[in-house]
């Protein structure tokens, strides 16, 4: 019988995202609309704080990682029209 899958905690997810953000170059800024423009260090601090911007960055990273896992980055359906 296979072991039940361990659920990843929020703390672990945050740590994963922070490690990924550490690989961002220091000479860029990320513009997130009304939230403002952020350096790598700003984004890491936001994820640590867990505020709106930090939570949004976690969403961006997780969505990207899921797409990578599923092979969705090269999927033609990404470019098709999705009616509302």
């Amino acid at each position: 019988m296979s072991k039940p899958k361990k659920k990843i905690s929020d703390k672990e997810i945050r740590a994963l995202v922070i490690e990924r953000l550490k690989t961002l170059p220091s000479n860029i800024k990320v513009s997130i609309g009304n939230e403002g423009s952020f350096t790598k260090e700003n984004l890491i601090a936001k994820v640590r704080e867990g505020d709106t911007t930090g939570r949004k960055i976690i969403e961006v990273e997780l969505e990207y990682l899921r797409a990578l896992k599923k092979g969705d980055l090269f999927n033609e359906s990404n470019t098709s029209h999705h009616p509302a």
Partner: peptide
Amino acid sequence: QKLLTSETPKEYSAAIRFLFWDMKHQVCLK
């Protein structure tokens, strides 16, 4: 695809996650 399949500087590779995000959340409502 260009960024994933070619040797690109770090700052360009960093763009991929955000490009994917914008593409996924762009919608055409009619």
